[in-house]
Design a protein around this nucleic acid. Structure first.
Length: 921
RNA sequence: GGGCGGUUAGCUCAGCGGUUAGAGCAUCCGGUUUACACCCGGAAGGCCGAAAGUUCAAAUCUUUCACCGCCCACCA
C-alpha cells in the first residue's frame, strides 16, 4: 500500500476495490466455535423482485454498523444474508414481463413458468447480492440462503407437517380475500384499505304478499349492487319494532325473481340506513357468518377473475363493474332504485397489484393463530424479547391479542408446494411422510411422497396444487437458515439470534410470525432459548418528500447505487445513519448527502495532510514506522515537551469520552447520535483544534516532533476505528496507509475504541476549553473590527486568577497564533485603550483586542445594549429563582449551586459589558 | 371507529424535566499562508403548532384542540 494519498478523494474506486477484496477474502465469515460472546443477526431477506432501494440501504447501514461494531469488540459475529422468493410479488413481476411478450402464464404451463421465474431469480438475486457487496454489507456470504432452496424447503415441510399434525394447520371452506388479478387468496394483512369516494345504492325489494295499505317493499342499501344477484335473504334486527311483523316473511329478489326470506339477526345495526340489510353469504364476510347461522344457501355469482358467472343469469360474462352499472340501470328502469348516495368508504385492494379484493368462499389452508400468538405475547411481556422503540411493543402486543387465523395457501405457481396429497377416491388428505426433500432438476421436492391412501388403500394420490404464503417460510428464517430442524453447530451457536432489525411496516407480516414460529417450533425447555431474537429494533422508513413510501412500482424508489456513484457509499451511509433517529421516518435530502460527502472529504484530507507533512519530516530522518507502528501507537499518549503538552492530553481525553458516548449510542440504536458525535469529534476537535494546535510541532526538533507525531498517528488511527462502522471503505483505505502488523488484514478486524481511564483528563478538558474561549473571543473581535486576517494585532487580557494567567503563559505561542495576535499583555483592570468592541465576552477570559479603527459607535452601542438587556433579564430571573425559598428547599442542591455560580458569572459578564459601553461613550 | 407519529432557526433535522434551545445546509461579513473552497475564521437567525394544567422548574410531563402523515378496524 503506497503511503502517498492522492489529492482527490475518489470514493468510487476505493469502494469498489475494498468491497471486492472483503468478499474475495471471505473476511466476514463467522466462526461457530470458540469462546467469547456471540452476536448474530439475520438479514431481512430482500425480495427478488428487482434490486434494492434506498430503504434497504438504510436498513443495511444500520445492521452493518452494529455488526461491524460487535465484530470489532471481539464478538463471534454472524450476519447471515439471503433472499426471499416472495411468492406473489415475484410471480407478479414475471407475469408482467411475460405480458410484454403477450404471454400469459397459463400459456406456458406450471413447469415452464417456474423455469422462467428461476431464471429471473438468478438475475435479480445476482443484482441484489452485487449491490449489497458494493454497499459494504459485512455479511457472511458463505452462509447465504434463499427461501426456496432445498434446505429451506425442508424446514418449511417440517414446520408444516408438525403444525398440521398438531391440528394447528387445517383446511376448510371459508370466506377469504381473493385477488381477481393475481387469482389467488391473500391474507388479511395483504389487503390494504384505501378510502375512495363511492356510492351507496338504496334498492327496493318488493314484499311478497304485501297487503293493500302496508309497505310494498323493503329498502336495502349497498355499495356493491352486483352482489345482489347472490342474495339469499334480507335481515333486520330482532328487536326492531318497525319490522317485527315481517320477520319470517319473504321478499322477491329483483332481477332474479327469487323469493328470499326476511330473517332476524343481531348483526344488523338498527340505526344504519333503513335497518334492513341484504344478505349475500357468498360475497361478504359478515353475510357469510349470518348465512351460517341461518342455514342460508350460498350463491356465488362470480368467477375467479371477477366476472359474473352462470348464477348471474343474464348478466353472466360481464365484468363485475360492468354488471354493476347494468344492474343499477335495470333496477332504475323497474322503479326499484330508491336513491343514490355519495359516500366515502374504504375499499380493500390487493397489496401487490392494487386490484379491488373480492371476498370469496373457497377451500383454503389456514393456520390457527390464537395459541401461537398467546405464547408470543407472553415472551414479549416477560421481556424475553426487547422491542425498540417502545411504542412498537404496544402495537405488537395489541396485534397478538386481536389475531385471527391466517390463510396460508396461495393459488400461485411460485412457492413452497403444500405437502399434502389428496386421495382421488375418498378425498382423504395424506401428508408427506416426513420432511425430507429430493432434488429434481436442481430444485427441491418433497421426497417422502405417500403412495397409498391410508383410508381406502387407493393409490391415486394427487398433490395439493397450492403453495404457501411467502411469509410462512420467512417466518422460519432465523432458524431455517441455521440448519433447523437439524441440530447443527450453527443453530446451537447462533440461535436465538441477538437482534433483528426490520422496518416497522413488516412488524405483523414477519417479525410477529417469526416470534410465534420460533417459540413453537425450535427446541429448548426455556422459551428464552426458543425466541428467534433477543432484541427487535424497528427502523424508520425512507419516504419521498410527499411522505409517500418508496415504491418500485410507483417509480419513487431511489436506486442507492446511483447515489453512491455520485456521492460515495461512505457518504451515503453516513447521511443515512445521521438521519436515523428512532421512531421518525426519513425524507431524503440532497443537502444532507452533500454534508456527508464533505465530511468524507474532510477525513481524507486530514489524513492526506499528515502524510504530506511526514514526507518533510522524512528529510530529518524520521520514518513512519518509528512514529506509527502498532506497538508505538499502543503506548500513546506520549509526553510532548514544551507548549504542546496540553493539546495532546486533551485530544486523548476527548477520544476517550467520545468512545464512551459512541459505544453507548450504538448500544441503544441511536445511530444519529453516534454519527453526530463522530462528526463533531473528527471535524471539530481533531481537525479544527488539535491539528491546528500542533502544526508547528510537526516540523520542530526531534524531541518535540517525534512524540507529537506519535500522538497524532495514534489519535488518527483510533479515530479511523471509531469511524469504521459507519464509513467502512474510507477508513479501511486510510488505515492501510499506516504501518500495521504483518498479519493484519483489515481495520474491520481491529478493536473498537473504548474509554481509557488513563486518557480521561478533566483538567485538560477544562483548560483547553478556557483557552478556546479566549481564542474565539479574540477572533470574534477581529472580525467585528474588520481586521485583515493577515494582520496580527496586540491584545490585552483581564486575568485575575494566577493559575489562569500561568495557563495562558504556558500556551502563549499557540494562543497568539490561533487568535492571530501579535502580543498579549495582562492587566488587572479592564483595558481602557484601543477601540476593540467585543460583544463575545466570556466570563472566563476577557480578551481585548487593541486596534485603532473607526468603529460604528452607535451600532456597537446598540449591540452592547441588546446583549446587556438579555443578560439583565437572565440575571433578574435567576436572582428571583434563587431568592425563592420553595426553589431552594425543593430543587436538588446541585441545581441550586449550579445556578448560583452561573449567576455570578453572568453578573461578572454584565459588569464587563457595562464598562465597555461606558468607554464607547 | 380505534391507535401511533409529526408540528423547534429560511430548509432538513437533533434535543424529550433543570445553565443563555443545538447541528448541518442556506444567508451575511472576512479570508489564495501548498490538507481540504466538498475549505478556514466570524456573525445573524427561534415567544419550540394553540390553549389549559402538573411542578420549585416545562420545547421536554398531562389534557384538550388544530393541521400533516402513517397503521389497524367486517357497519351494509
Amino acid at each position: 500500500m503506497p503511503r502517498e494519498i492522492p489529492k482527490a478523494y475518489e470514493p468510487q474506486e476505493i469502494e469498489q476495490r475494498w468491497a471486492q477484496a472483503w468478499f474475495d477474502e471471505k473476511l466476514f465469515r463467522a466462526e461457530n466455535s470458540g469462546d467469547g460472546p456471540m452476536f448474530s443477526i439475520a438479514l431481512p431477506p430482500p425480495n427478488i423482485t428487482g434490486s434494492i432501494h434506498i430503504g434497504h440501504m438504510l436498513e443495511h447501514t444500520q445492521i452493518d454498523m452494529l455488526v461491524r461494531w460487535h465484530r470489532m469488540r471481539g464478538h463471534h459475529t454472524l450476519w447471515l444474508p439471503g433472499m426471499d422468493h416472495a411468492g406473489i410479488a415475484t410471480q407478479f413481476v414475471v407475469e408482467r414481463q411475460l405480458a410484454k411478450e403477450k404471454i400469459r402464464r397459463q400459456d406456458l404451463g406450471r413447469e415452464e413458468f417456474e423455469r422462467r421465474v428461476w431464471k429471473w431469480k438468478a438475475e435479480s438475486g445476482g443484482v441484489i447480492k452485487e449491490q449489497m457487496i458494493r454497499l459494504g454489507a459485512s455479511c457472511d456470504w458463505t452462509r447465504e440462503k434463499f427461501t426456496l432452496e432445498p434446505a429451506l424447503y425442508r424446514s418449511v415441510l417440517e414446520a408444516f407437517l408438525r403444525l398440521y399434525g398438531e391440528g394447528l394447520i387445517y383446511r376448510g371452506r371459508y370466506m377469504v380475500n381473493w385477488c381477481p388479478r393475481c387469482q389467488t387468496a391473500i391474507s388479511d394483512l395483504e389487503v390494504v384499505h384505501i378510502d375512495r369516494p363511492g356510492k351507496l345504492w338504496h334498492l327496493r325489494y318488493p314484499l311478497v304478499g304485501a297487503t293493500g295499505d302496508g309497505p310494498k317493499y323493503l329498502v336495502v342499501a349497498t355499495t356493491r349492487p352486483e352482489t345482489m344477484l347472490g342474495d339469499t335473504a334480507v335481515a333486520v334486527h330482532p328487536d326492531d319494532d318497525r319490522y317485527q311483523n315481517l320477520i319470517g316473511k319473504t321478499v322477491m329478489l329483483p332481477l332474479m325473481d327469487r323469493e328470499i326470506p326476511i330473517i332476524a339477526d343481531t348483526y344488523v345495526d338498527r340505526e344504519f340506513g333503513t335497518g334492513v340489510v341484504k344478505i349475500t353469504p357468498a360475497h361478504d364476510p359478515n353475510d357469510f357468518e349470518v348465512g351460517k347461522r341461518h342455514n342460508l344457501p350460498e350463491i356465488d355469482v362470480m368467477t375467479g377473475d371477477a366476472h359474473m358467472n352462470d348464477n348471474a343469469g343474464k348478466y353472466a360474462g360481464l365484468d363485475r363493474f360492468a354488471a354493476r352499472a347494468r344492474i343499477v340501470e335495470d333496477l332504475a328502469e323497474l322503479g326499484l332504485l330508491e336513491k343514490i348516495e355519495d359516500i366515502q368508504h374504504a375499499v380493500g385492494v390487493c397489496d401487490r397489484c392494487k386490484s379491488e379484493v373480492e371476498p370469496r368462499i373457497s377451500e383454503q389452508w389456514f393456520c390457527k393463530m390464537k395459541p401461537l400468538a398467546e405464547t408470543g405475547k407472553r415472551a414479549v411481556l416477560d421481556g424475553l424479547i426487547e422491542v425498540v422503540p417502545d411504542n412498537q411493543r404496544t402495537i405488537l402486543l395489541n396485534w397478538f391479542e386481536n389475531i385471527r387465523d391466517w390463510c396460508i395457501s396461495r393459488q400461485l405457481w411460485w412457492g413452497h408446494r403444500i405437502p399434502i396429497w389428496h386421495c382421488t377416491a375418498c378425498k382423504e388428505m395424506v401428508p408427506a411422510l416426513d420432511s425430507r426433500v429430493e432434488i429434481v432438476d436442481g430444485h427441491a421436492r418433497a421426497a417422502s411422497v405417500p403412495t397409498k391412501c391410508p383410508k381406502c388403500e387407493c393409490s391415486q394420490l394427487v398433490q395439493d396444487p397450492d403453495v404457501l404464503d411467502t411469509w410462512f417460510s420467512s417466518g422460519l428464517w432465523p432458524f431455517s437458515t441455521l440448519g433447523w430442524p437439524d441440530d447443527t453447530e450453527d443453530l446451537r451457536t447462533f440461535y436465538p439470534t441477538s437482534l433483528l432489525i426490520s422496518g416497522y411496516d413488516i412488524l405483523f407480516f414477519w417479525d410477529a410470525r417469526m416470534i410465534m414460529m420460533g417459540l413453537h417450533l425450535t427446541s429448548g425447555f426455556d422459551p428464552a432459548q426458543r425466541i428467534p431474537f433477543r432484541r427487535l429494533y424497528l427502523h424508520s422508513l425512507v419516504r419521498t418528500a410527499e411522505g409517500a413510501k418508496m415504491s418500485k412500482t410507483k417509480g419513487t424508489g431511489v436506486d442507492p447505487l446511483e447515489l453512491t456513484q455520485k456521492f460515495g457509499t461512505d457518504a451515503l451511509r453516513y447521511m443515512l445513519a445521521s438521519m436515523a433517529a428512532p421512531g421518525t421516518d426519513i425524507i431524503l435530502s440532497e443537502d444532507r448527502i452533500l454534508g456527508a460527502r464533505a465530511f468524507a472529504n474532510k477525513i481524507w484530507n486530514a489524513a492526506r495532510f499528515l502524510f504530506v507533512n511526514l514526507e518533510k519530516a522524512g528529510a530529518q530522518g524520521i520514518t513512519i514506522e518509528e512514529l506509527a507502528a502498532p506497538d508505538i501507537r499502543a503506548a500513546a499518549p506520549y509526553v510532548v515537551p514544551g507548549e504542546g503538552a496540553l493539546a495532546h492530553r486533551w485530544i486523548f481525553a476527548r477520544l476517550s469520552a467520545v468512545s464512551a458516548q459512541v459505544n453507548d449510542a450504538l448500544e441503544n440504536f441511536r445511530f444519529h447520535e453516534a454519527a453526530q458525535l463522530i462528526y463533531h469529534f473528527f471535524w471539530g476537535d481533531f481537525c479544527d483544534w488539535y491539528i491546528e494546535w500542533v502544526k508547528p510541532q510537526l516540523t520542530a526538533d526531534r524531541d518535540v516532533a517525534v512524540p507529537a507525531w506519535r500522538n497524532i498517528f495514534a489519535a488518527l488511527e483510533a479515530a479511523l476505528r471509531l469511524l469504521h462502522p459507519v464509513m467502512p471503505f474510507l477508513t479501511e483505505e486510510l488505515w492501510h496507509r499506516l504501518p500495521q502488523r504483518a498479519a493484519a488484514k483489515s481495520i474491520a478486524l481491529e478493536s473498537f475504541p473504548e474509554p481509557h481511564a488513563n486518557w480521561s483528563d478533566e483538567k485538560a478538558e477544562r483548560e483547553m476549553s478556557y483557552l478556546q474561549g479566549g481564542i474565539v473571543s479574540a477572533r470574534n473581535q477581529r472580525a467585528e473590527l474588520k481586521i485583515n486576517q493577515k494582520e496580527k494585532v496586540p491584545a490585552e487580557a483581564l486575568v485575575l486568577d494566577q493559575q489562569e494567567r500561568q495557563l495562558i503563559e504556558e500556551n502563549r505561542e499557540s494562543f497568539l497564533r490561533l487568535a492571530s495576535l501579535s502580543d498579549l499583555k495582562f492587566s488587572s483592570r479592564p483595558a481602557s485603550s484601543g477601540g476593540g468592541a467585543a460583544v463575545a465576552i466570556s466570563a472566563d477570559l476577557d480578551i481585548r483586542v487593541i486596534y485603532e479603527a473607526k468603529i460604528d459607535r452607535t451600532a456597537e452601542g446598540a449591540k452592547l445594549k441588546k446583549e446587556i438587556e438579555r443578560l439583565e433579564k437572565d440575571i433578574d430571573s435567576k436572582s428571583k429563582r434563587l431568592a425563592d425559598e420553595t426553589f431552594r428547599s425543593k430543587a436538588p442542591p446541585e441545581i441550586v449551586r449550579a445556578m448560583e455560580t452561573t449567576l455570578s458569572e453572568r453578573q461578572a459578564e454584565l459588569q464587563k459589558l457595562r464598562d465597555r459601553l461606558k468607554q464607547l461613550d
